[in-house]
Simulated assay, not measured.
Amino acid sequence: MPSLHHIIRESSLKENAPLLIMLHGYGSDENDLYSFSQELPEELFVISLRAPYTMQPFGYAWYSINFEAEKGKWSDNDQAIQSRDLIANFIDEAVVNYPVNKHNITLLGFSQGTILSYAVALTYPEKVKNIIALSGYVNKDIISGDYRKRDYSHLDFYCSHGSVDQVIPVEWARQTPSFLHQLNIKHCYAEFPVGHGVAPQNFYEFKNWLKKRI
């Protein structure tokens, strides 16, 4: 499969750097989450991906969304699965092409990027270590069928959501901790009094969480 378009911030380390891959939300692009990178630890090698589907008049998406539909019919799951596998493939490419540690890879997603981060981690747990899941939820329909049999003991999740999110209801995100607990996955979950976005205190919390794990 072709590589995804991306931008990078190089690490202060010349080899074996911890890798952070950013996955933006619906209608955004690779520059959105990349703005966080200047505040993140300098030893991180940062890659911010652009989703494969072009939107009009601007922006990109990992898959189509029908905002009028019920939760179960909300997403184009076929497109989402294709994007899940594109991201998994890109991780393999990044390990080959950049001076990073394949055993220390973090996915940072926002909204649709979070939904894909969950799907990648739970379908391909051997490819990642940490997940920062902002303003998203778990879509079980885009995780491979045998996920309950997998070993997730090395994974660690930081999950957060806005308590007044007007795009993805906070109730969807509140189902995540019990789901991860059932899979014996280490995780923490936090809510902040904001809408569909990342509050400053949310950023500093996940930044400190990540610092302790790289």
Rank of each mutant, 00 (worst) to 15 (best):
Y63K: 04
Y63V: 08
Y63C: 15
S64W: 01
S64E: 15
I65H: 02
I65D: 04
N66D: 15
N66M: 05
N66S: 12
F67D: 04
F67W: 12
F67K: 08
E68A: 11
A69L: 07
E70Y: 03
E70K: 14
E70A: 15
K71L: 15
K71W: 13
G72T: 12
G72C: 06
K73R: 13
K73Y: 12
W74M: 15
W74R: 15
S75L: 15
S75V: 15
D76M: 11
D76F: 07
D76G: 07
N77G: 06
N77I: 14
D78L: 13
D78I: 14
Q79R: 08
A80P: 05
A80T: 06
A80D: 09
A80K: 10
I81R: 07
I81G: 03
I81Q: 02
I81M: 05
Q82A: 12
Q82F: 01
S83Y: 03
S83G: 08
S83Q: 06
S83T: 13
S83D: 09
R84F: 09
R84Q: 10
R84K: 12
D85E: 13
D85C: 05
I87K: 10
I87L: 11
A88D: 06
A88Q: 02
A88M: 02
N89F: 07
N89H: 11
N89M: 08
F90I: 12
F90V: 09
I91R: 03
I91N: 06
I91C: 02
I91Q: 03
D92M: 05
D92E: 13
E93D: 15
A94G: 02
A94F: 01
A94S: 13
V95H: 04
V95C: 14
V96S: 09
V96W: 01
V96A: 10
V96D: 10
N97K: 15
N97P: 01
Y98C: 07
Y98T: 11
P99I: 10
P99W: 05
V100K: 02
V100C: 04
V100E: 04
V100Y: 00
V100R: 01
N101A: 03
N101Q: 01
K102C: 06
K102F: 00
K102G: 07
H103I: 00
H103M: 09
N104T: 08
N104G: 01
I105K: 03
I105N: 06
T106K: 06
L107A: 04
L107G: 07
L108F: 00
G109L: 06
G109E: 05
G109H: 09
G109R: 05
F110P: 12
F110W: 04
F110R: 09
F110V: 12
